[in-house]
Design a protein around this nucleic acid. Structure first.
Ligand code: ZN
Ligand code: ZN
Ligand code: ZN
Ligand code: ZN
Lengths: 166, 166
DNA sequence: TGCGAAATGTGATATTATAACATACTAAGG
DNA sequence: CCTTAGTATGTTATAATATCACATTTCGCA
């Protein structure tokens, strides 16, 4: 019995990321529709920009991409869109990088843990309830009632590990 | 079999924190001496300020306390001291708060995990090799070679949990 | 259409962190 | 002692990240 449900693995070199992005956007539409929340223009564009990047992207980099075509958005617009996207589980924040990353399985709320490559910045999202439970249980032994857990491992992704030290 | 070695628990209300601080400073002197690194004036004062606080403290709050007595230090001085203290395991950075916290057992380098109270900001430091190993092992199944792990749980410390929902 | 709530625009400002270069201190060898 | 190379600190400016406060617009609905 493993409660670990891997969702977004490290991409192989050839994968068509635009396909991932398109799928994610479609999912987002459906999810927001179903929940009765509005994926407005700016929110959708921020989500697009996030998915256009295959690595976590900072708020001001998102802003720059939004404005690349002559736009005039301000930081607040991005942060507000991010608030919405995170609240609705469409995007995750990577605390150790001050950066944002599209969730690949936003249909249901979930715990997430991240593996972040120090070389190429690729991210894999884990969804190990076991890991989360281990933290919760350990905390419990100290009388601590867990509300949220941040787990972010950095290191070498499979691709970069192969290159550096076979 | 538990490889969990709890070190800094949540303090009870009456504990004499100045004693903790004094002990930590003494330890720091010994450790730096033993390692042949210099706990200079500013580094020691930053460590003092960090221990004066019983909760994680931000770099600019450290700066303000340094300068409270008419000092004129600049941010760089604080960040450089923090670099040193972190590198030598005397201080931990709490990524989810952009804040710094004195390590209670710096004698030997170690993995650390943190429990952070959302109400009073109290922190307990865990040192569970088991937890770390679980992350490493889970990552391994995806071909990821872990170099560093951030585990930070937020929630209610025993004191605050008791008050809010018995 | 008109209203209240939600969303966005706008400008200023807060907070956190680093770059670049000058100066001062320290320890070791001659 | 004196030089010198390395370490540490001072100083100024700036980068990067994030929020506040208030005006305006848009949306859903009565
Ligand atoms: Zn996710
Ligand atoms: Zn990589
Ligand atoms: Zn520690
Ligand atoms: Zn508390």
């Amino acid at each position: 019995m493993s409660s670990s449900r891997p969702r977004r693995d490290f991409p192989n070199a050839e994968h068509d990321h635009s396909h991932c992005a398109a799928h994610a956007l479609g999912q987002a539409d459906l999810i927001c529709e179903a929940r009765g929340v509005r994926l407005t223009e700016i929110r959708r564009r921020v989500l697009e920009v996030i998915w256009d990047s295959h690595v976590p992207i900072g708020a001001y980099d998102i802003l720059a991409k939004l404005n690349a075509g002559g736009g005039r958005s301000a930081p607040m617009a991005v942060y507000r869109a991010l608030d919405f996207l995170i609240e609705n589980g469409l995007v995750h924040r990577i605390d150790s990088r001050n950066a944002f990353f599209g969730c690949s399985h936003p249909e249901e709320p979930h715990r997430a843990q991240f593996l972040i490559c120090n070389v190429c910045s690729a991210v894999a999202e884990l969804d190990s309830e076991a890991l989360h439970e281990t933290v919760r249980r350990t905390a419990r032994t100290k009388g601590f009632r867990v509300e949220n857990v941040v787990i972010e491992a950095s290191g070498r992704c499979p691709n970069c590990a192969r290159k550096s030290a076979p």
